[in-house]
Nucleic acid binder design. Structure first.
Length: 553
RNA sequence: GGCCCCUUCGUCUAGUGGUCCAGGACGUCAGGUUCUCAUCCUGAAGAUCGCGGGUUCGACUCCCGCAGGGGUCACCA
């Protein structure tokens, strides 16, 4: 199976020091998992190079659901082998946000260590593992050192492109692939830095059939690139790390972004060369967005909607975000949701095979809003209060204090028109202040512009005075409304809105205007939930205090 | 540029040879109920299934070509 020159042990020792553990010993310490048949071991593997990308959330969600439904494991692995791109604090942020979105993993890095027996779950801590495998590859001739400088490489690739040859380190271009050992020793003696490359046996002109759980049976060209396994800085590349890690962690299905699809044949080859069983893959299309007239995948740098924390900040319930993502993944989730209103989305029978094969869906904030609205509308008042307070605690602390000052009052406020999920006026927690703030005296007090529209000031005072004299907390809604009609008509406002519409000059307005005056005075806004309910919740004292400011003296 | 993948209403999609002159959801528009808003109800517009060829009695569904879009060709993941 091997070809080319196999270096002597003495030379290999200068490349990679023999580790404490051999491959055999390592494998023995990562035994097969004791899981029920059919259990899936899934993992999500972000790089700590910035905020948590919505795509990472997406894969994490799928991993969690699949693992949960098959009685398997969902793990987090921190892929931090690119120290140049690493962003301070990113790993903690990723871990926190996954927890915020209720996507806590069964295994993975946690504050102060690791959770799980198949770690370490941070790649920068797994050096000895990678070295053991690479050493064995070296010994078997599946890998070799390359002393080409980055500048030489760049020149080579530029030349290939200019000659319209497929760029890469392969075939005649693989300069160090078959150098005699004496040259390797000479370069080592000269202290030249090096990388370790994969001695690919592939033929770029041949095809290979690959099976993908989402994309199905596809044909890809074999890989012939002698890709880098260990970088100059001693850290592994993604390719090597993926093979070693997923093998040792016993990942059953490698779920990753579509951009990896064309590397599948490379990874199959690598698995063979490393001496491990090939993996089952599932490649998921990236979430895209419209940019001018073309679409592109969500960019970390340009698009705020690519960041998971944006949704949290804006106050979308995490469940709504998860359900939106789930809908993108399996479109029949929508029907299931309607049929199973009480169940958790985690119970949705998810199928990887049902995921879309196309090149990626456009993100739709309108759809997210709709899902969020429906979710919030069905929330029990107590639950709404607890979620809203939690959000406010992080993003609007004054609001949190207001909401919690009198919890039973807040719950009554949230209970208005809530039976049956009728009040779909809130899309996210950040809208709470604007929509319901007026119920709370500290927020109401800040209102300065009471806009009564076309209604004369004297009429405003007259209506409010008359109302204050006749209001009775014990009125039913019918009695209450009759009262408003009556006092309105005594002041020149017809109880019949249609009549007013047909003959606007005969009246000052209709009962609608009368109610509007009361509404504006009480809430500072010209739109509110059912006024009767608003008054019932506010109670006589608060109502009297507020209305008295507008009454005639 | 080479290679790979994809292509159904504005958006997300259902659809695997006849049940589809294509169904649903979101969005949009119109009307109705209503004290405003939000609901709710009724209805409407919206895809010649990217285009062109085949195969077939019959194609959104199978085959070929083309076009468009996306991805990939790093000592980044």
């Amino acid at each position: 199976m091997t070809s080319g020159h196999i270096l002597s042990t003495a030379t290999i020792d200068r490349l990679i020091l023999p580790g404490e553990l051999s491959v055999q010993e390592i494998e023995a310490s990562y035994p097969a998992r004791a899981l029920p048949a059919g259990a899936e071991v899934m993992r999500t593997a972000p790089s700590p190079t910035g905020y948590l990308h919505i795509g990472t959330l997406y894969t994490a969600l799928i991993c969690k659901i699949v693992a949960r439904q098959t009685g398997g494991i969902y793990a987090l692995r921190m892929e931090d082998t690119d120290q140049k791109r690493e962003v301070e604090g990113a790993r903690e942020l990723i871990m926190e946000l996954l927890e915020d979105f209720d996507l806590m993993y069964d295994e993975g890095p946690v504050v102060g260590g690791d959770k799980g027996e198949y770690g370490p779950y941070t790649q920068s801590q797994r050096g000895n593992l990678y070295y053991a495998y690479v050493r064995r590859m070296l010994e078997q001739g599946h890998a070799y050192p390359c002393f080409m400088t980055p500048e030489e490489l760049e020149t080579m690739v530029a030349g290939q492109i200019q000659q319209k040859i497929r760029p890469g380190y392969y075939g005649q271009w693989a300069a160090w692939r078959d150098r005699p050992e004496t040259e390797v020793i000479a370069a080592l003696d000269a202290g030249k830095p090096f990388v370790i490359r994969f001695r690919s046996l592939g033929n770029g002109n041949k095809k290979r059939v690959v099976e993908d759980r989402i994309k199905g049976r596809k044909e890809l060209p074999e890989n012939d690139n002698n890709i880098v396994l260990i970088k100059r800085d001693g850290l592994p590349t993604y390719h090597l790390a993926h093979i070693v890690d997923d093998h040792l962690m016993h990942t059953t299905t490698v779920l990753r972004a579509d951009e990896w699809f064309s590397s599948v044949t490379l990874h199959i080859q690598l698995a063979e060369a490393v001496g491990v069983a090939p993996f089952t893959y599932a490649h998921i299309a990236p979430i895209q967005k419209m940019d001018g007239s073309s679409r592109r995948k969500l960019s970390k740098r340009k698009d705020p909607e690519a960041s998971a924390s944006t949704y949290l900040q804006q106050g979308y319930p995490t469940v709504a975000v998860a359900e939106y993502l789930l809908l993108l993944a399996n479109s029949n989730f929508e029907d299931w949701r309607v049929e199973n209103p009480g169940k958790s989305y985690l119970d949705f029978p998810f199928r990887l095979e049902k995921m879309q094969k196309n090149s990626g869906a456009l993100i739709s904030l309108q759809k997210l809003d709709d899902i969020s609205q429906n979710y919030l509308a069905k929330l029990a008042p107590g639950e709404l209060l607890s979620q809203a307070s939690e959000w406010a605690g992080r993003f609007d602390q004054a609001l949190q204090i207001t909401l919690q000052a009198n919890p039973s009052y807040t719950e009554k406020v949230f209970n208005i028109e809530r039976s049956g999920g009728q009040r779909k006026d809130i899309t996210k927690f950040s809208e709470l202040r604007g929509a319901y703030g007026f119920f709370f005296d500290d927020i109401y007090k800040q209102i300065t512009d009471f806009d009564f529209g076309q209604i004369e000031k004297s009429d405003v005072a007259a209506i409010i005075t008359a109302f204050l004299q006749t209001y009775n907390l014990n009125h039913t809604q019918e009695e209450w409304f009759e009262n408003i009609k009556r006092l309105g008509s005594q002041l020149g406002f017809t109880p019949n809105t249609r009549e007013y519409r047909q003959n606007p000059d005969a009246f000052k307005g209709s009962v609608a205007e009368v109610a509007m005056v009361l509404r504006v005075a009480l809430t500072g806004r010209n739109r509110s939930p059912n006024l009767y309910d608003v008054m019932q919740v506010m109670g006589k004292e608060r109502l009297t205090v507020r209305l008295s400011h507008f009454a005639s003296t």
